[in-house]
């Protein structure tokens, strides 16, 4: 390991929501003390059932939700101490890609407008430059420039997900958080997107944080897996180790729930 600090270091992160139904209802603890480190160029998968807090963690990292306590260090900077304008440069460096593009893309905008939106928000270049860059980015993710005028609903799920990736790349991020980005796609489309992501990682030196409920799929994509359960990371390790030697009972439960595991990385234990 080099002396350079890790890209992301999270320590003691908690998030509580006020309870539903009256003031005296107990608070819901979505994150109960998370410690996590992401090194540059790695891919980590956060795996857990719905309600385990994995999406909350993703949103806290992208600074879309305010954690209750704890710290997030990004490239040596205390992210939670930054607000408003001073946060902006970091917003560019962390991008979030969300589940199903049908709602993640404004249905009224055209493909090129969607991709150039981040540039517009940040005031980069003029209209023509932004458009040129948008077409470039579409090519990068494998969408023909001829589709620039299509609206999201005229595209397939996989194509929409490519569009979402192109939009995230517009600001040249270092960390890409993919929250259930593969849900609802066919297996063959999943494979195409996965190879696109791997290709981009090589070219742009990206770090990926996958968030998913699908342990098998994550086993194929990531190097390392962190299992989340009730707001905590209960187990973390290399993919092969998690599949062959699950230590936490919840990890074993997740593995047992997989109907048949065609995982090349880990043959099922008897």
């Amino acid at each position: 390991m080099e002396a350079e600090p890790p890209l992301v270091r999270v320590s003691g992160l908690t998030k509580r929501y006020p309870g539903r139904g009256g003031r005296r209802a107990p608070a819901v603890e979505a994150l109960a003390g998370i410690d996590l480190t992401l090194t540059r160029g790695s891919d980590l998968a956060l795996v857990g059932q719905s309600g385990s807090g994995k999406s909350t963690l993703a949103r806290c990292l992208a600074r879309l939700e305010e954690p209750t306590s704890g710290q997030i260090w990004f490239d040596g900077t205390d992210l939670l101490s930054l607000r408003g304008r001073r946060l902006l440069p970091f917003r560019e460096r962390i991008q979030l890609i969300l589940q199903d593009s049908a709602t993640a893309l404004d249905p009224r905008l055209r493909a090129a407008e969607i991709v150039s939106e981040p540039l517009e928000v940040l005031g980069r270049g003029d209209r023509r430059e932004r458009r040129r860059r948008a077409l470039e980015l579409m090519e990068t993710v494998g969408l023909p420039a001829a589709w620039a005028e299509r609206r999201p609903l005229e595209l397939s799920g996989g194509q929409r997900q490519r569009l979402a990736i192109a939009r995230a790349l517009a600001v040249k991020p270092q960390l890409l958080i993919l929250d259930e980005a593969f849900a609802g796609l066919d297996a063959s489309i999943q494979a195409q997107i996965a190879s696109l992501l791997r290709d981009l990682q090589g070219r742009h030196g990206l770090t990926y944080l996958y968030v998913s409920h699908d342990l098998v799929l994550m086993g194929l994509l990531a190097d390392e897996v962190a299992i989340m359960f009730e707001g905590r990371i209960v187990e973390q390790g290399a993919v092969a180790r998690i599949f062959t030697d699950p230590r936490h009972p919840h990890t074993r439960a997740l593995l047992a729930a997989v109907p048949s595991r065609p995982t090349p990385a880990a043959p099922p234990p008897p």
């Binding site: 946060l87 890609i97 600001v171």
Partner: peptide, 25 residues
């Protein structure tokens, strides 16, 4: 609550921009 509003926030869109571009229409 739409994801694209969240995504726009993610690349630093201001409240005014979100209202003008995504919510008002």
């Amino acid at each position: 609550e739409r994801s694209y509003v969240l995504a726009a926030r993610g690349f630093g869109a201001s409240d005014l921009y979100l209202i003008r571009r995504h919510i008002s229409p």
